[in-house]
Amino acid sequence: MNIFRILGDVSHLLAMIILLVKIWRSKSCAGISGKSQVLFAIVFTSRYLDLFTNFFSIYNTVMKFVFLMCAYITVYLIYGKFRKTFDNENDSFRLEFLLIPVTGLSFLENQSFTPLEILWTFSIYLESVAILPQLFMISKTGEAETITTHYLFFLGLYHALYLANWIWRYQTENYYDQIAVVSGVVQTIFYCDFFYLYVTKVLKGKKLSLP
């Protein structure tokens, strides 16, 4: 466990809390892609199946529970409680374009051909593309509420910090996991365009609106 890991997990948790608070306080999920949140719930479900079999630390187990809870509560708020405010026609990314390649790849490229390992690999590949429906929705509506951009910033920061964590672990433990690193780099690249807009617009107090 290193500082990048801890900051990364905190940043991830912060992103989920920002999103929950935004939806709960505004009683609306306008501008939020329900599909991305469903994908995140699938990511955590397929990744944390070892929740009851592998025990690493209290921190690890508690964080997995919290992440699962946040993901499912968010999905419930979007498709349940505040479904009337759900912007369905703009959340139009075709999930099968993500799920099929990711499923295929997790059967082809994995560390061992066992159900748990394939599901874990599936969750890693899926997480790297899970944000695409949200980014697609923002590009379609041409703008995003500032609170949504903060959510995306901390989500992107979490993965950038995880990259730093993997570099650190490679330097200190001479260990790395190619599948996690490659998909992590892909995921962080998707945020670069957003990071640029976030720094040049949102941090200057402007609203994030795409040209």
Binding site: F56, N60, Q111, N165, Y175, D177, Q178, I179, A180
Partner: peptide
């Protein structure tokens, strides 16, 4: 070296 991932990350 690429060891078996202990899956200790979130």
């Amino acid at each position: 070296e690429q060891g078996i991932n202990p899956k200790d990350e979130l």
